[in-house]
Write a protein that binds this DNA or RNA. Sequence first.
DNA 1: ACCATGGCTTGGAACGATCCAGAGTTCCAC
DNA 2: GTGGAACTCTGGATCGTTCCAAGCCATGGT
Lengths: 345, 345
Amino acid sequence: MAVPRSGGHISAAPPTLADVAELAGVSRQTVSNAVNNPDLLRADTLARVQDAIDKLGYQPNRAARSLRTRASHLIGLRMPALQEGTANAMMDRFVHSFVEAAADTGYHVLLFYGDPADPLDGYDELLRSTAVDAFVVTDTHLGGQQTTWLQSRRARFVSFGRPWTQPDAKHPWVDVDLAYGAEIATEHLIERGHSKIAWIGWHKDSLLGEERRSGWIHAMHTHGLSTTGLASRTEDSISSGKAAADAILDETEPTALVCASDTLAMGVLHALFERRLRLGEDIAVVGFDDSQVAQTVPPGITSVRPPLEEAARELVKALEELLATPSYAAPGVMLKPALTVRGSS
Amino acid sequence: MAVPRSGGHISAAPPTLADVAELAGVSRQTVSNAVNNPDLLRADTLARVQDAIDKLGYQPNRAARSLRTRASHLIGLRMPALQEGTANAMMDRFVHSFVEAAADTGYHVLLFYGDPADPLDGYDELLRSTAVDAFVVTDTHLGGQQTTWLQSRRARFVSFGRPWTQPDAKHPWVDVDLAYGAEIATEHLIERGHSKIAWIGWHKDSLLGEERRSGWIHAMHTHGLSTTGLASRTEDSISSGKAAADAILDETEPTALVCASDTLAMGVLHALFERRLRLGEDIAVVGFDDSQVAQTVPPGITSVRPPLEEAARELVKALEELLATPSYAAPGVMLKPALTVRGSS
DNA sequence: ACCATGGCTTGGAACGATCCAGAGTTCCAC
DNA sequence: GTGGAACTCTGGATCGTTCCAAGCCATGGT
């Protein structure tokens, strides 16, 4: 092999194992070992091969390696749906953290698109064509469709988000304890002297919403505060956040509001703006997710910040284990969020 | 071939060409043709093969196909640096649009991470291992390091952003005419009756900044308005936006402000908040990029919206041409942004 | 001196697809 | 009825890597 390659001295095609082998005067397999099992080689042989590798700038061809080892070193991640006008920049921060964490362990991220109407769209193709080694699933709170399906296809995956509806799910997962988040948010307000603290949250059928709400209730009751007339449930949108805020401000006149999301908090801000109330002075507001918006809007919205970087690292760790040991069953990991205090409280 | 596969009836390994061929009673090559060149087959044969494909749920193995055709159908995209606190959600929207546009043409996006300090980090490895067919480069305004390097490595790529510093660059690119954006933003304010319209922009060495600024100047002069004492140059951060706004509000008392970015606009909002001025009533503000923040902050910030979805589609189109015809040299595409009018003006 | 041992290296086969050249059919014109 | 083109289909080689089993060679114990 190692026939003269196509071009002149600037070779268009990348060098192959055979090229390196010829230059180093060893067999293909020895070069392969130099790359994958260096300790099998005698020191001087290894040095010679390394030299040749460096000289040629050799890098194993990914497709060939994938074909043989049945591993692509790619992790599939379905692009979370983009909600215009909703401040869910959280997912973007997660994707970012995940790509970074995965890079450390030699994995890259294959981003794919799926029809938002079909939570399973896109997975099948990648699975069947063995394009990825595993998936990261992010929207478990929308029901366990993806995880159930992936499990049935014997696909490997981890999820960011606990298996809400399947308590017996065996896949590794990482989630953030947002009941605790709501609790520290509420306690922060109590510390600041507030006692009439309202909750603006999501509908009853939202698992995430009930979870967060329970933290507020727990904190209020622990401190002997009443919650009657102070809770509101609505959609996760700015306009419904505003409507909810308007209603609750008229009815019970709370001095502080805890919102289940930054989006709702923005709705509250709209209500305040209209009433010419000053955020952080006339009334305190705490949000959830620590989005861009919370960080930048004056005077800054105090917000519960999920530790996305840590979550990403944990997920990558779980993925590594999972790919090393197919039968790996990890206990779920629950992380605690922190409160970022800003001018709004 | 087509030996009995490992397991029982629930086969763990995905079916291969050979499996389909056996079931359909044809050769491997015929199945391959059924997938890639259906019109080469007789109608009844095609139907039979299709049947077998459907029955087995066959999907070509990506690694094997890549190896043989030297095409991975993956586009590399380096994760843009995440600036905490800066409202550059624009890039996330672009990534999203791009993934979606690429999916339509059968391409997936390989997201990779590179050390923010080294604009070239990450590219080399993917290139040498032939992991991707092409790259999308996004930060051309930081200087043409990436494009120059990629060109020298004979890599295929397109860029979102014009080749600022290399007027003779041959690669396809798509960009948004932000001078025009600044112009329509300014004209919008003029229409609303403003005449003392200030500019809060970036430093002189920012190509992007000068570009945008020129649009403001052009609009002002066209309408016979003076720009003296109304321009300010600073960093792209909230705090410096606030400082610039403070200075210019004290000095020249403009009735409207055009900002080179939403980040600067947020800085302005901070200044207004401190001065207890009401956005959109006491003073008008227009931002750039139409970020989440601009969309959600009450009463909404009028902002220049780059047509990212269209840009993504154009880039994918250029990529297709480029990959089909290696020598393809496209003229750059310049897109016009639109103004999204909100309560701030 | 001989065989077993272990360290190091090797050539052939395989992963699953496509390229290529050729073989078999069909069909029509002469 | 024969030649030839056009249409279908096939088997072998190949992409670049890793797996596998075997080979080579020095070492050391008997």
